[in-house]
Nucleic acid binder design. Sequence first.
DNA 1: AAAGATTGACCGCTCAATCTTA
DNA 2: TAAGATTGAGCGGTCAATCTTT
Lengths: 137, 137
Amino acid sequence: MARNPDTLLHLLLHAAHGLEDRLEAAFASVELSSTRYQVLEQLAAAGEPLALGELADRASCVRSNMTQLVDRMEKDGLVRRVGDPDDRRSVRAELTALGRERQKQGARQLAAFRKEFAAALPARDRAALERLLAALG
Amino acid sequence: MARNPDTLLHLLLHAAHGLEDRLEAAFASVELSSTRYQVLEQLAAAGEPLALGELADRASCVRSNMTQLVDRMEKDGLVRRVGDPDDRRSVRAELTALGRERQKQGARQLAAFRKEFAAALPARDRAALERLLAALG
DNA sequence: AAAGATTGACCGCTCAATCTTA
DNA sequence: TAAGATTGAGCGGTCAATCTTT
């Protein structure tokens, strides 16, 4: 996204990209992506299998996306599909032991990353950043 | 990317995403994407055909990505491939009349969007934002 | 008919492997 | 051998169409 590099807009988007790349690298160190972590996190927090549509809603993505994501995660042994006896249209995703393990590792990576971010953030700029984010809302 | 919504890191990434979505929508209104616009912009600025590798370097992406992007843009009539007589390994992309037209429309959209962004940005927070971006560098 | 999931086609990106020309 | 471009496979996202169950 390197249009017109001398623009504050550009600098902001570029910084956000860099941040995301580094976060992605942190997750990659435990063989996850932020997308996969997000799913594992939801399932761990829920403490029970969740319907794919429910997962898609929580991830703010489209249903077909979750279908394919769960395909890949299932192939890698992170989750498994289980049917819902009460509504046979529904398919739920359930954590496997491996998925549970990876979720914990991912959580540690994320916590460390957040800490690093907070440390890099000039303390006196927190308020300004919060105003900015509110203005962009 | 909705992990842990009450985190400053998360808020920043979320805001950047929102910004990008809106920028993308602005480009879409003239049947472009930010990616395609970026290529058109480089070609217009250069004033001559550019090798695909050169375009990939300027877009900070991998060569194969540019091959495929130019495939799609060529199919849509925005650019055309031309050979380089001086180095027969090289393939250059050249703007078509349609590509030139779209680049101008895209530039107008981008300018309007930047203006809108600047207006939404609390003036007293500019300095803080610049420090923040420097710290994240 | 409406909801849940899936499929197929596409955008945009990565990597590894390949083919051609220098 | 190096460099330039392409191909093929995969991730992650969209949309439109489809199939099953409610």
